[in-house]
Computed example of a mutant assay.
Amino acid sequence: MNSEGQMEVSTVPADKKRGWYLSLMAPNTKGPTFCWLDPSRLYCNAQALADCVKDLLSPFNTDSIDLVAGIDAMGFILGASIATSLGKGFLAIRKAGHLCVATQKQNYSDYTKREKTLEVRLDVLKPGMRVLVVDQWIETGGTMKAAIQLIESLEATVVGVAAVAIENTEGGKWLKDNYTFSHCIPEELQGQIDGKYLNFFKSFQDGYCDKRVI
């Protein structure tokens, strides 16, 4: 806390390593009806967000990308940041009912196992357009797969998928096997991600995470 009692986001470590910003993520403090962590806390740190975007783009440095698509809703933050970094346009893939124009729809079920629908506008994607698809987190892979199906149904090409983390679920493995992918998780942390608990949560108290480097 600073002198005014406001929460400070950790400063950038001098010897930062790839994924250093993951220690800024916050654990779930509200119970089982919520996701097990909140990755969005790292976006509050400008350098963390910039480094996250840089890391996510590293596998695609030699690829031609025409458009970045982000999945409703948290994928909008990373997707728009990546699009700005690339100097490309951004396409929002929405949950059904939010677009007031003609759309293509795709049904799916996500980690909650509830049936849902994604939709995308029809006036942007063109045959052969190369699209990078971005979400905040990939758990079962159901949402990302639905987004891919939408894009490919309009004959655009999915260059790859990007997220802060891709869990090694059946769906996560399918995405890794079939598409170029990027995420920010070092190999030594993948087991913790799959186990839904990060060891540095032990030092997270009163909404403040210490400055340890992963």
Results as ranks from 00 to 15, higher is better:
Gly172Ile: 02
Ile151His: 00
Thr157Asn: 07
Arg130Trp: 05
Gly160His: 03
Trp137Ser: 13
Arg130Asp: 05
Gly128Glu: 06
Thr169Met: 02
Leu132Trp: 02
Gln136His: 02
Leu132His: 12
Ile166Glu: 07
Lys126Asn: 13
Ala147Asn: 04
Arg130Met: 09
Leu125Thr: 05
Ile151Trp: 02
Thr169Val: 04
Met129Ala: 13
Lys126Tyr: 07
Ala162Val: 13
Met144Trp: 01
Val124Tyr: 15
Thr140Pro: 00
Trp137Phe: 15
Val158Trp: 10
Glu152Ile: 00
Arg130Thr: 09
Lys145Gly: 00
Ile148Cys: 11
Gln149Asp: 15
Leu175His: 08
Glu155Trp: 00
Val134Ala: 14
Met144Leu: 09
Thr143Asp: 08
Lys173Asp: 01
Thr157His: 14
Val131Asn: 10
Ala156Pro: 05
Gln136Asn: 12
Thr169Pro: 04
Glu170Met: 08
Gly141Ile: 00
Lys126Trp: 01
Met144His: 06
Trp137Arg: 08
Gly172Ala: 01
Arg130Ile: 04
Ala146Cys: 14
Asp123Ile: 08
Ala162Asn: 07
Ala162His: 12
Gly141Met: 01
Gly172Trp: 02
Val133Gln: 01
Thr157Ala: 08
Arg130Phe: 12
Asn168Glu: 09
Ala163Asp: 02
Met144Glu: 01
Lys173Phe: 00
Gly172Cys: 08
Met144Cys: 05
Val161Lys: 04
Ala156Ile: 00
Gln136Ile: 13
Gly160Lys: 14
Met129Asn: 06
Asn168Pro: 04
Asp135Met: 08
Ala146Gly: 14
Val133Phe: 03
Leu154Lys: 13
Thr169Asp: 07
Ile151Lys: 00
Glu167Ser: 08
Gly128Phe: 12
Gly160Asp: 13
Thr157Lys: 13
Gly172Arg: 07
Gln136Arg: 09
Ala147Asp: 00
Val158Lys: 06
Asp123Gln: 09
Val158Thr: 13
Leu132Phe: 11
Glu167Lys: 15
Glu139Lys: 14
Ile166Leu: 14
Val131His: 10
